[in-house]
Amino acid sequence: MSQFSVNPVVGADWTLFGHNIAFTNSAAFMLVILGVLWVFMLGGMKRQLVPGRWQAAVETMTDFVANMIEANIGPKGKKFTPYVFSLFMFILCANLIGLFPLAVIPGLHAFTVTSHITVTGVLAIMSFSIVLIVGFWKHGLHFFSLFVPHGTPFILIPLIFLIELVSFLVRPFSLGLRLFVAMTAGHILLDVFASFVIQGLNSGGAIGPVVSLLSFVMIVGVSALEILVAAIQAYVFALLTSLYLNDAINLH
């Protein structure tokens, strides 16, 4: 579990309005994500008519998000593309960097920013706030009609309203928790199999190396799965954000 602990790198006693704002390993990895993203995007800024591999890769990502917004929200959602793209790329990059085998360099250890509820929660609240602001800005109190689907029988309106309201309010939690849990669970799974490898080798029994080998094979498989999960979770976060934005912009 130590892979999830946040430790100050510098400025352990920095404070702002009485709160500790130390530059931690988590903050350091956020900067790494920023740097990697910036370098990646820089490859797409060559703006050639016939793109090279790198430029094509960057354009694939922007096209992917732009198409997602276009499909889920429509032309009105175009101004939210930068936000959803930033969100998607940040989460994808964080997930993948967290899987990077940095520990082969002594003294370093990969840290998954998105395995922290303090990060995913903030991202979720940010998305939810944008949905609320856009919804009330565009539709005023009419936004509440989102909670009463078309064709609801008159008698059922209070009940449906309540259910829809609860499901709406649960959104930020499900959004933030989903990413946090998926990342944490994946890393714990890898951790568990890794400890099996070590314990199998140390057990001294005849069955030990067999367990170690099987666990190692499992690590390979789970690592591949985790790369998939890293991409899927980033996609799910961005997709749900755009779906919620669609609710706010187009109601039902």
């Binding site: 704002i21 530059f23 931690t24 988590s26 903050a27 994500i33 903030v122």
Partner: peptide, 12 residues
């Protein structure tokens, strides 16, 4: 860590 996480996340 909440303040540090929030600050650096929002900044980045």
């Amino acid at each position: 860590i909440y303040a540090s996480q929030l600050l650096w996340l929002l900044l980045v």
